[in-house]
Nucleic acid binder design. Structure first.
Lengths: 190, 190
DNA sequence: TGAATTTCTTGAAGCAGTTCAAGTTTTTTA
DNA sequence: TAAAAAACTTGAACTGCTTCAAGAAATTCA
C-alpha cells in the first residue's frame, strides 16, 4: 500500500521492520480527483503531500488573473509550501491535482510524532529537501540563461513523457512564457 | 568563536553542553578575502559554508560571458551546491566571497561524523533546508509575477541595507535584469 | 597620491516574447 | 452522442527590457 513511499525512503536510510510498522500506521493514502485543491492561497499549510500516483502542481494566480505553475509533482515527489508550513503564515500558493491522484497526506502533528518515534526520518527529509533546494537553484539557472525555446527543448529532452501529460499552457507557464508562444514554438514558427 | 552558528542552531534545536563541545571541536573558522572562490564550476562540491561575517554569492557565467548571481549569503546563511554535494556531480556554479568574510567551512566527511555524534543536527539541517527551499519558491514567484522595477523596489523594501552593500550590477543580475537597466531604474528613467 | 581598475550612466536601436482577438480542435460531461 | 467546456492555434500590433558603445564616476592599490 505504501510501498512507493517506503521504497523512496529506503533509498536514503534503512528502516527495520518495527520502524516500518510504526511508519505505516501513521500514514493514510487517499484518492484525489483531478483538479481538486490540496491547498489554497491564504490558507496556512500544515500538511506535506507525497504523490504515489498521478500529478499535482503548485501554482499562483498572477496580477493579470492567469495561472502560473511553479512546480509539478509526479510519482515519488513531495509537494507542499514549506514556508507556510514552518512559519505558520498564509500560503502564497495553490496546490492542485492535475490528474486523478493517489496521495499520502502527512499532517504536521503526525509527522512530528513520527520524527520523534523514528529519528532516522529526519535524515531522509533533510536529504530530500536539500536535493529539492538544489533542483530549485538549477531551475533558476535555466530560467536565467536559456531562451523560451531552449527551455522548452531542454525540458522535453529531460522529461519526454511528461510533456505529453499536462496541458501545454500549464507547461508554458512553468517554463515562464505564454501559452500562445508555446504554440508557436511547437509549430516551429519562432 | 562559533557563537553565531551555535545561536542559529539553537533557534531550531536545543543542544546540551557536551554536544556543544563536540560540535565546536569539529568546526573551523576561516578568514576569506574578498573575491576568493569557495567553489568553481566543474568542481565537485563537498563542503557547506556558513557565513558568520561578510557576504558570499553563488553565480554562473552565462553564454554571453556575463556573471549572473543566483544567490547571496550574508551573516547566518549557509551556502553550497547541494546537488553537486549529494550526487557527487560537477557543480554548475561558482561560489565566491563578495566582501572579506569569516566563514565556517564544514566538509562532508566531518559533517557526516557530526550528524552521527549529534543526531539532533539532522533536524536542524532539515528545517533550514526546507525553509531555504520555500524561499527559493518565493523567489521564483517574484521572478514570474513582477516587472524588473517591481522586483527592485520589493527587494529594496525587504533588504534596505543590503542594497547598499553589493555592486549594483550584481544585484541587477540577481533580480534578472541588466546592469544598464538597473541604472535607469535607480535614476527614475523607466 | 596617482594610475589602474571597477562600477555606474546614458541614449539609440533592436528584439524576444506578450497581448489581443478570433477561430479551430480536442476533451469532457450530461 | 450532442452540447459544453477546455485547450490549442494564428497573425498583427506592441512593449519591456537588452544590447551596444562610449564616457563619467568611484574605488582600489601600488
Amino acid at each position: 500500500m505504501f510501498t512507493a513511499l517506503l521504497d523512496h525512503i529506503q533509498k536514503f536510510i534503512t528502516l527495520d521492520s518495527e520502524e516500518i510498522d510504526i511508519l505505516e500506521s501513521g500514514l493514510t493514502l487517499s484518492k484525489v480527483k483531478k483538479k481538486e485543491h490540496l491547498l489554497k492561497e491564504g490558507q496556512i499549510c500544515n500538511t506535506i503531500y507525497f504523490v504515489t500516483k498521478g500529478c499535482a502542481r503548485q501554482y499562483i494566480i498572477n496580477p493579470k488573473g492567469t495561472e502560473q505553475t511553479l512546480q509539478f509533482a509526479i510519482e515519488n515527489w513531495w509537494i507542499t509550501d514549506y514556508l507556510s508550513y514552518h512559519n505558520n503564515t498564509p500560503s502564497h500558493f495553490y496546490i492542485q491535482t492535475v490528474e486523478n491522484c493517489e496521495i499520502i497526506a502527512l499532517e504536521k502533528k503526525d509527522l512530528e510524532t513520527l520524527l520523534i518515534k523514528i529519528p532516522k526520518l529526519e535524515k531522509y527529509f533533510r536529504i530530500v529537501s536539500q536535493k529539492s533546494f538544489g533542483a530549485a537553484q538549477m531551475r533558476i539557472k535555466f530560467l536565467f540563461t536559456m531562451s523560451a525555446e531552449e527551455r522548452y527543448n531542454h525540458f522535453k529532452k529531460q522529461q519526454p513523457d511528461f510533456v505529453q501529460r499536462v496541458p501545454q499552457y500549464m507547461l508554458a507557464s512553468y517554463l515562464d512564457f505564454s501559452a500562445e508562444f508555446m504554440s508557436k514554438i511547437r509549430a516551429g514558427k519562432v
